[in-house]
Nucleic acid binder design. Structure first.
Lengths: 405, 405
DNA sequence: ACCGTCCCTGAATCATTGG
DNA sequence: TCCAATGATTCAGGGACGG
């Protein structure tokens, strides 16, 4: 069969053309049994893509899935793996099929892909994850451990220490004859876990094709990295817009994509030529880069029932309750800001918005002129810490005066 | 059946004693079908707790689960919900049982509890999540939406704006006649999603060495908060060390716990009786903070550079810096306290101590007489929240006056 | 009662613009 | 050339409503 190509047709038939024991990784992302038809239009409204996810019964759906899994088992190398992407709708049924066909012992992980999404009016919890079942063909599966950074709260000193078991079998830090802790071998970071927080494909991302249910390339590169090496063969029997193949090509793996829709095949082929992959700032920098509030500032905002705003030099938060029908912006004076600067920044950020009340929390003693204060409609409240400090100063003066008497 | 108690026995028998349609929330956390006996020893090695998770077959295990779910359905009110906590080992089998007994339409969410943990040497991905299936008894289930903070990357300025449809039917931001954006309605934050990142260890208790099977209290308080109101009845048929009951008691819900192990029942009873003391002896000291001080009070104390004090009705904390060589006690006025009461309590707790300065943080509007204030040497500072509230009132009056003119 | 269709929602984040 | 600020666009959505 053609390597590095997208094949048009029903995967159950087309998989017959693939040799036994020839594929290293199969990722598939079948319809989720939503019992809906999914339609989406590309950016310039020139093309509408659709696929049908309606079945007469769950049995009909599962029998389709089962046939694909059976074929997958046949064509997979002994070191190969299957990744089946689904959501909560039918995941339990699907996993039973996987257990039956591939064997319960070959179940490796239930990967949770989690993302933030715009909310809706649903009663209940907002859906924010999908599931990827990871099964190997045998116990001798290929696996590359990826490492992630230690979390900010980890005590690095501590994890660098070696451990041993004490008399009770508890794991304790190893100590030398002088009672000092012993440093262990070099650490490479935290092994990748089974919960993957990867941003949902953004409405504005250039990577977006207009094909419904398109997955981010980053999700696929991670899968491909853990289960294959360069030159290995990756297969996607429901390739849709071709994300899997794009990721495989990017990572210098061979690929085969199959899809029943001619539109999808055409789109996937085009994507493979263009290879547009959006850089995710969020993933590159990590979410912590975006958090710029100190614990103290967050505590202060919580205190006055405000939610925090990140990355805005003029506004640190908004009160949860409106005033006069408008939001109330809050700014907290920074350590290196004069009161005057702080007021100016808040005013600039509020310009053109019809805020009725704006609040600045003063955190430092100041000698701003009374005149200047009157020219602004920013209300200044003194932080409790400042009030405490001023109080202490005043009391000190009183005590000093007493001593003089 | 006894309300607010822990019952010793097999839950399948004991559930018979509970009336039909009487329970608001059932959380259960059965053995995960690990086919192992779990043994854990507490910190000072004085006591070993064990439970058996070995079954002859998955069918035997599932039939046990099914009987509990059937009973659950019977005793649940029509507005009630079931939360079943399990892990990937048998989750798919368990969900089939849930679908069968409670009905597929009553499936609400697959909640993912994710946490960071120590790495191990296992080939493959590090497990970092467990699953909680959320089913309601009917479509008319009780649900309180909780709100979380906006993502750090969210442009809050923008989403506060109102929107409308333009000529092409596209949704665009609304502007007034001068081209300024129009502010929309009040925002409450982002509805809680189905992925919950909650550390195994309470973040305020990093020093804690651990008690692995125990669930974090925050996990349980969150479940109880979304599905019940104060005074509602919470049941845990596999209550173990009693975390569910502790959380229920903390949130002023009624509770029933059942466990087959005498040791567990004893432990749970002790935790409930002396919630704070047992917590600190058995687990850690940091959890104290969680129980006695509300988050808001902790934030406020942090705000003025004070550390919290537990179990003293007159003093909530002390400033980290002394004044005049003496500590400075802080009290925060409680929701149900008059300013006068608060002052008296603080004075009583400070009696005989040579505090030079005592600070009361006023949190509610009051009409205490000026005279009374002068008789005390307690300094009263107004919380920022109160200042904001007073400011809003004042501005409202000004606006009202303007309208009259 | 059940389906399809229409209409509403709302926060996330990358691309673009601005300095 | 880089960083910061701004806003466009969405919908493995969800509910209401009418035939």
């Amino acid at each position: 069969m053609d390597i590095n190509n997208i094949i048009h047709g029903n995967c159950i038939e087309k998989l017959n053309d693939i040799d036994d024991n020839s594929v290293d990784l199969i990722y598939f992302d079948p319809p989720f049994f939503t019992q809906r038809k999914h339609t989406l239009t590309n950016k310039d409204n020139s093309k509408t893509f659709a696929f049908d996810d309606k079945y007469n019964s769950i049995e009909e759906y599962l029998s389709m899935i089962e046939r694909v899994i059976e074929q997958s088992k046949r064509i997979l190398k002994n070191t190969g793996s299957v990744f089946l992407h689904c959501d909560k709708t039918a995941s339990h049924h699907i996993r039973l099929v996987l257990d039956r066909v591939l064997g319960r012992d070959n179940f490796q992980s239930e990967i949770i892909w989690t993302y933030k999404r715009w909310s809706n009016a649903k009663k209940g919890l907002l859906n924010a994850h999908q599931v990827i079942f990871f099964y190997s063909k045998t116990q001798d599966f290929k696996f590359n451990t990826l490492y992630t950074d230690y979390s900010a709260t980890t005590n690095l000193d501590q994890i660098l220490q070696d451990r041993e078991r004490n008399a009770n079998g508890k794991s304790v830090y190893k100590r030398d004859e002088y009672g000092n802790t012993v440093l262990g071998k070099e650490k490479r970071g935290v092994p990748l876990s089974d919960v993957w927080e990867i941003p949902y494909l953004n409405p504005k991302a250039r990577e977006r094709t207009g094909y419904p249910t398109q997955k981010p390339v980053v999700l696929l590169t991670q899968l491909i990295n853990i289960a294959t090496d360069e030159g290995d063969l990756v297969l996607d029997p429901f390739c849709g817009s071709g994300t899997t193949c794009v990721a495989a090509k990017y990572l210098q793996r061979k690929y085969i994509g199959i899809d029943i829709s001619g539109d999808a095949v055409e789109l996937a082929k085009m994507r493979l030529e263009e290879m547009i992959i959006s850089e995710s700032n969020l993933l590159n920098k990590g979410v912590n880069e975006y958090y710029e509030k100190t614990e103290k500032e967050l505590a202060l905002l919580q205190n006055i029932n405000a939610f925090p705003v990140q990355r805005n030099s003029g506004i640190d938060g908004f009160l949860k309750e409106h005033f006069g029908g408008a939001p109330v912006p809050i700014k907290i004076q920074k350590e290196d800001e004069t009161l005057e600067d702080a007021i100016k920044k808040l005013e600039k950020s509020s310009h053109g918005k019809n805020y009725i009340m704006k609040i600045l929390i003063q955190t430092k003693e100041t000698n701003v002129s009374r005149l200047f204060r009157l020219e602004t409609d920013v209300t200044i409240l003194k932080s409790l810490e400042l009030q405490t400090k001023e109080l202490a100063n005043k009391n000190n003066k009183l005590r000093a005066a007493k001593v003089l008497q």
